[in-house]
Amino acid sequence: MFDHLYGCSELVVNSRNIGKVCTDPNIRYNPGIRMYFDAHKIILDGFAVRDGAHIIKIKDKMRITDYIVYMYDETNVDLPKGMDFWTPSLFTDEANKSFLKVYGK
């Protein structure tokens, strides 16, 4: 299941990290990898399905390396000045800013 650019995927990752559902976007967070995909190519290549709840789901399986546009983790996204830890919302915002500087139009 894929989310949109400003979605809550970091909350899902953080919930898994702490072992329970956590919907607090401002809790301390150790980021994993935030991946950005070419959704248009996924759709054109016939891998996308829609269920009415998610932006895109993948039918069966696909090779993700063929569709990744870029990946961010805490080594290539700068923690904003004045902050000494990541939160799900902060990491989402900063990774999106980095992505949109290069790929946004």
Results as ranks from 00 to 15, higher is better:
40 H>W: 02
15 S>E: 10
48 A>I: 04
71 M>T: 01
13 V>L: 13
15 S>F: 04
28 R>W: 07
53 A>M: 11
86 W>L: 08
94 E>A: 12
100 L>Y: 01
87 T>P: 04
11 L>S: 09
3 D>I: 05
21 V>Y: 05
14 N>F: 07
96 N>M: 02
43 I>E: 10
66 D>N: 15
14 N>R: 15
36 Y>R: 02
89 S>G: 03
66 D>M: 07
9 S>C: 10
86 W>I: 13
85 F>L: 10
45 D>H: 12
21 V>N: 11
42 I>M: 14
19 G>Y: 07
65 T>C: 12
60 D>W: 01
21 V>E: 15
24 D>K: 03
10 E>V: 01
20 K>Y: 13
43 I>F: 08
1 M>H: 09
38 D>G: 03
69 V>S: 06
88 P>H: 01
80 P>E: 10
59 K>N: 11
76 N>G: 01
56 I>N: 06
18 I>D: 02
101 K>Y: 05
74 E>D: 15
14 N>L: 15
102 V>Y: 01
67 Y>I: 09
44 L>K: 13
91 F>N: 07
94 E>Y: 06
5 L>N: 05
102 V>E: 15
58 I>H: 03
35 M>L: 13
92 T>G: 09
70 Y>N: 05
79 L>G: 07
96 N>Q: 03
69 V>W: 00
11 L>T: 04
5 L>S: 10
92 T>V: 09
25 P>R: 11
84 D>I: 08
78 D>Y: 00
54 H>T: 14
2 F>M: 13
81 K>N: 14
74 E>N: 07
31 P>F: 01
79 L>W: 00
31 P>W: 02
8 C>N: 14
22 C>V: 11
40 H>L: 11
69 V>L: 11
102 V>D: 03
36 Y>S: 05
23 T>D: 14
45 D>R: 03
21 V>A: 13
46 G>D: 12
82 G>Q: 03
76 N>H: 05
44 L>Q: 15
96 N>C: 09
20 K>W: 09
91 F>C: 05
14 N>P: 00
8 C>H: 12
99 F>L: 09
6 Y>Q: 15
5 L>K: 11
79 L>T: 09
42 I>D: 00
91 F>E: 06
